[in-house]
Nucleic acid binder design. Structure first.
Lengths: 181, 181
DNA sequence: CGGAGGTTTGACGTCCCTCAAGGTAGGTGG
DNA sequence: CCACCTACCTTGAGGGACGTCAAACCTCCG
């Protein structure tokens, strides 16, 4: 979403495998843009097919519904991040959430993961300038908590990272497996 | 949602008629608290009944789904508010959104509405201290844009308020009537 | 070689928080 | 009636976190 001056606010980050913009199905029109930061492969789900699913497969419908509400749970957490955390906590929280989601989908093991974002992108997710993101990453590095170089993040002290971020992955509903309903 | 020190971040404000916590149906457990700021009357919708609805009434199911995605649209806007607006814009945006929603449900006509919140509550919605909310309300008052006294808000110059808030009510999906699908 | 995009660092400014004091209105008990 | 409390709002002074501006560096690429 862009403000009047054209400055961007990221409201979500989609990872490989995510159902992008399923919100557009019940809502019909969308209030934000979707853009890709990397090369992507896309499969399309026509609204007519989705409507058929909601006619014939109640259980599958609830699963689709669930996946949009998982997005909503992340939105709530992003509100918390922006409203209650300082810059260091925001960056830490963003990294922690992204790592958890990558692990859940099998795209990361251990404490390293690829994050093809610039510091400016991270700033747009966390309501910060790229410059201050740079400072916060340095702080995390200096404190031996996490490092990021060449688009690769490594957690050196996950517990301290979580504490700074006030992060608790419960809201990602992972322990039940992604699809509960 | 509370941070470690017990400071609260509001992530949503429900108005009379809203379906509170419908998210809890597909999600099963919830990652935030629900509290009332005023006296309320409550009707309960048992999950068993909702499950029956999703079995037998696809159209009604899509309407319920839609209403949760309207919440999600507001979450996105709250993220934008916290990430990209300054204090004056945040307060203005919060007032503008609440007014629009009240008008949509017939609970406000014209440019006045009752808002039974303290300045501390508004601060918890906007990521500000009660003290700075007080200063921003004074600013809006001094500039002849909006006033709030005794829990009643009045818009004196709605256009300027919208401009400060970078507010566009499209995301509330009101022009189609609340229930599109 | 030059240029573009990204990162880092320093100096400085400002927005908002913190702390403190005082004001008002309502409620309770004398 | 006054005295006193609580909750909320207001205002001022000072400080800190983050933004802005500028400069330098690096890598990649043509």
């Amino acid at each position: 979403m862009d403000d009047r001056k054209g400055h961007r606010q990221l409201v979500a980050l989609h990872l490989p495998g995510d159902f992008v913009d399923l919100h557009g199905f019940p809502l019909q029109r969308l209030d934000h843009d979707v853009a890709s930061l990397t090369e992507v492969s896309v499969a399309f789900a026509p609204h007519t097919k989705l409507t058929e699913i909601t006619q014939d497969y109640p259980h599958l419908t609830r699963m689709l519904w669930f996946s949009t509400l998982l997005d909503a749970a992340m939105y709530r957490e992003w509100i918390f991040r922006l409203g209650r955390l300082n810059a260091l906590g925001r960056v830490a929280h963003f990294l922690a959430e992204t790592h958890c989601r990558l692990v859940a989908t099998g795209l990361s093991h251990g404490q390293r993961f690829r994050l093809p974002l610039t510091q400016a992108d991270i700033g747009e997710a966390c309501g910060l300038t790229n410059i201050h993101v740079s400072r916060m990453l340095k702080e995390l590095r200096d404190q031996g908590i996490a490092s990021m170089e060449e688009q690769t993040v490594e957690f050196l002290d996950r517990d301290r990272l979580y504490r700074i971020a006030e992060f608790d992955p419960k809201y990602l509903y992972l322990d039940d497996g992604i699809l509960v309903p």
